[in-house]
């Protein structure tokens, strides 16, 4: 904080000075002067963000260079980089993969599984959490079961899932569903317990009945926590999906990564990992964007 404050001062001092110099010098001064001033202003207002982008880019470049050097000189220092593919090799296989319908199909299938599993989990867990938060009896009935099932990692469900579901595809979607289900449920429930009782009383005083209170107070009041749950749930969904694909899958980006190891396609391992990272990041950014759309009252 203090460092960014220190950085800001010279820019502020410069901008008006620059504008003052330009204004008398140019004959039709207004457009150029205001453009300069506007650019300076834009720069000042977005300085923090620009800096974050610059620093972020540098750190990414440093990471890539370090990776390149470590693999180029096949460093062995506790960790062995002998067989690790270099960033350039990964880039080559990326160029190949992007035109390879098989690779694209792996990615598309994983996305489809996430979409199905996660959407189902959200559709079940959010209403369940809302109802559990509102009605004591339902909470008392469901909470103990969910508390026992919750600590079981989704991967531990793989054998059971294979028994439960007729097709491999269904059991993978089921694992994904389970992974995101509990974070969403727990956060929704938490959001419900934090609803300000005064708001509920205010709604009652304005003539709201039970259903309206649920729709107009409890639900919007819990939304920020529901979205926290969805973000966390999305992360866990990817973790579970990849594990399920590696163990029981045919197809999918997790399967692709594991298969690359079996086939000694080392650069494809890294490609698969990076693809998983990018997909995971994209999906959680997507949820955050939806959250901002749905909750315009919250400060961004």
């Amino acid at each position: 904080m203090s460092s960014s404050a220190l950085v800001r001062h010279p820019a502020e001092a410069e901008a008006p000075a620059a504008a003052a110099e330009q204004a008398p010098a140019v004959t039709p001064p207004h457009q150029t002067a205001t453009f300069g001033a506007m650019a300076a202003r834009w720069y000042r207002l977005n300085k923090g963000r620009l800096r974050a982008i610059a620093v972020g880019s540098i750190s990414l470049i440093v990471f890539l260079v370090a990776w390149h050097l470590l693999t180029k000189y096949r460093v062995v220092f506790f960790v062995r980089f002998t067989n690790v593919p270099s960033p350039l090799a990964v880039y080559d296989s990326f160029k190949r993969a992007i035109h390879d319908p098989m690779f694209l199909m792996h990615v598309a299938l994983s996305c489809r599984r996430i979409l199905l599993g996660f959407t189902l989990a959200a559709l079940v867990a959010v209403p369940l959490g809302l109802v559990m938060g509102r009605f004591k009896l339902i909470h008392e009935m469901i909470f103990p079961v969910s508390e026992v099932l919750r600590p079981i990692p989704a991967i531990a469900w793989v054998p059971m899932a294979i028994m439960l579901w007729p097709t491999n595809e269904q059991s993978i979607v089921f694992i994904t569903f389970l992974g995101s289900f509990f974070p969403i449920l727990v956060n929704t429930l938490h959001g419900m317990t934090l609803v300000d009782p005064v708001l509920v009383r205010a709604a009652r005083c304005l003539g709201a009945r039970e259903a309206a209170i649920f729709r107009e107070v409890y639900f919007p009041a819990s939304l920020p926590h529901i979205f926290t749950g969805l973000t966390v749930g999305m992360g866990v969904a990817w973790v579970s999906l990849i594990a399920a694909e590696m163990i029981s899958g045919q197809y999918g980006i997790g399967y692709f990564t594991w298969e690359a190891y079996s086939l000694v396609q080392y650069s494809d391992i890294a490609l698969g990992m990076i693809a998983i990272g990018v997909l995971g990041l994209t999906s959680s950014l997507l949820i955050r964007a939806i959250g901002r759309l749905v909750m315009p009252w919250g400060r961004a």
């Binding site: 005064v198 708001l199 009383r201 205010a202 005083c205 304005l206 003539g207 919007p220 009252w297």
Partner: peptide, 20 residues
């Protein structure tokens, strides 16, 4: 017998719905 719109109430904590 219970709260109703017949008796409007104003609370110390404002109690406006933040999402509206």
């Amino acid at each position: 017998k219970g709260p109703s719109a017949e008796r409007g109430m104003v609370f110390q904590q404002y109690s406006l719905f933040p999402w509206k």
